[in-house]
Design a protein around this nucleic acid. Structure first.
Lengths: 327, 327
DNA sequence: ATATTTTGTGTAACCGGTTACACACACCAG
DNA sequence: CTGGTGTGTGTAACCGGTTACACAAAATAT
């Protein structure tokens, strides 16, 4: 392995000059620049990032802490983070936390020892000490808790209102809202958005609390529909739950969208693979990840942040689980 | 930040002794051990991994190079790799290659400068110089090319035969095989498996080549079914393609599984969310990732490998897109 | 009793960079 | 002509670990 000293020797200058040339700081004469350039090329020199990190106490590593990459919402997010990281010369470490604070803490501790630059975190435990005490840049994604941590999220409230209105506009008068877990911030915002919109509307509604899981949602909806056959609209606050609802409807022989309309929330790609295609309130998942990554990198590089709270707009994607609007 | 020298001073020993204690090599007396232990605890000392790496030329980093985490096949794989890595004290770096050799090369180069331990690679370019010349442990996943690289994959041939037989057993006599991309090794193996099984069977068949993408598959199948309404079975060599086929069938008003039976390949979780649930030849995706990670770590730690070629069995998961077996 | 091996420890070089500081020289102002 | 500023460069300390080597004491062999 060629070192900076080899380069210095070959170029006939000191290591300091080579280092200055490499980092583009301090004075380097044109002559020296040329000589170093040539030596670098000739020796095929590549800087040793580890040695560099040891001095600068920086690495171009960023950590992405998320509950579970297996959840279809996260891969696109991860992809966005990785894409942006790459363009800025950063590398991303994947951390599946399972929402387990102990695992999260373990990651933050381990990675601090590697001089990691910062973290993008999707967690409900953002007020846990391993985040508040970390002294490292953090950007929260999707879920806010701690005021001091910059966050990017969707406009969940507005999105839920949008979805609810879509159901009402399409004639639904007996609506089931699948609320999602109570401890989940975005789920709560969506709930509020739903309530705000349904309130005063000429419609009955029910709310079911449950996890964002396919099978549980399917079972939940199946028994609900059996007990409440008059239900003509379901708004699920996640696409996976909506898929469960759709499956339940199929199982019961209910015609979607003629007798029951379904709208999901998230905009994951699976939505279009269902039959009928899932109408959904789509988040711009990629954009969320990309914005978060850019924010984090700005923080790491000590650049000013224009905003500590970035809200990404949502939009309704109309597919087959809803009818056309009644006029 | 407390350093090893602080610990040494507090414990009244030399840094060498502390280092030996920390790494569990060389001689350390009971007394010294106790003193160091106490000092470590008192000072809350944590070893600096970067400084350590600089000497040992090792980091507990492993790279996971895959085409695109957004493809539903990969998250589970990534999850498995990460889980295993974690238990062995390794950290995984996520690299989306888009099957682009240049991007792959970029990653391998960049990460070598960080003394990365090795790579798990899912790529068709395994014979590219950045892999053959890398001098770092590599394990190939899913796709073999280079003899010298250990690999873990599913038994694709056998799986395809299994799926084909399932279709035949269920009465299909006009079978469409969705072959997948020609440059893809597993797709070719599946093709061979299909051919081996269909050969000699009392059935007509067609083969369509196309990417493993939902929309393309849907369009492809739609036009095929229009031209060949007698088709009574589709074997797609990926679940995503199968989902496209199912969607096309629905669009054309074909009853699945009564008039057309569909079997996919992969066993991704989306399969059960479809209606009807997708019958599929399931790979044990998690197991594949886990085995690959364990193999890589063995290589990194210079432990002997029992096998350089690990084949994970597949199994047929029967759901709603197939009928019961004719007897 | 002496020779040899094993155990235990410390000093200092080293991994491969960065950078504070000292110094030299050129240029310009007064 | 002197002093100040800007430019260019090298030496050596430093980042925080690991480890080769030297050496001493204890244990064991002869």
């Amino acid at each position: 392995m060629t070192t900076i000293r080899d380069v210095a020797k070959k170029a006939g200058v000191s290591v300091a000059t080579v280092s200055r040339y490499l980092n583009g700081n301090g004075y380097v004469s044109k002559d020296a620049e040329k000589a170093v350039e040539a030596a670098v090329k000739e020796l095929d020199y590549e800087i040793n990032q580890v040695a560099r990190s040891l001095n600068t106490k920086k690495s171009n590593l960023i950590g992405l802490i998320l509950p579970d990459i297996t959840n279809p919402f996260f891969p696109e997010l991860a992809r966005a983070v990785e894409d942006v990281a790459l363009t800025y010369g950063y590398t991303v470490i994947l951390c599946n936390s399972d929402e387990n604070p102990e695992k999260e803490r373990n990651y933050t501790e381990q990675l601090k020892k590697k001089y990691i630059g910062g973290f993008i975190v999707i967690s409900n435990q953002l007020d846990a000490p391993h985040y508040t005490d970390i002294k490292l840049p953090i950007v929260a994604l999707d879920r806010a808790i701690n005021e001091s941590v910059p966050i990017v999220s969707s406009n969940n409230r507005e999105g839920a209102a949008l979805g609810t209105r879509a159901l009402l506009d399409r004639g639904c008068r007996n609506i089931l809202f699948l609320r999602g877990p109570e401890e989940l911030n975005p789920a709560n915002d969506r709930y509020e958005g739903f309530m705000a919109e349904i309130d005063g509307a000429d419609a009955h509604f029910s709310v079911l609390t449950g996890p964002f899981h396919f099978e549980e949602s399917e079972e939940l909806v199946e028994s609900f529909l059996k007990a409440h056959p008059e239900t003509d609209g379901i708004f699920a606050s996640s696409d996976v739950s909506a898929a469960g609802a759709l499956k339940a409807a199929h199982k019961l022989g209910i015609d979607v969208p003629e007798d029951l309309q379904i709208i999901g929330f998230d905009g994951i790609s699976m939505g279009e693979m269902l039959s009928p295609g899932l109408t959904t309130v789509a988040q711009d998942i990629y954009e969320m990840g990309a914005v978060a990554a850019r924010m984090l990198i700005k923080l790491i590089e000590n650049q000013p942040l224009e905003e500590r709270f970035h809200e990404v707009p949502v939009k309704l994607i109309v597919r087959g689980t809803t009818r056309s609007v009644r006029t």
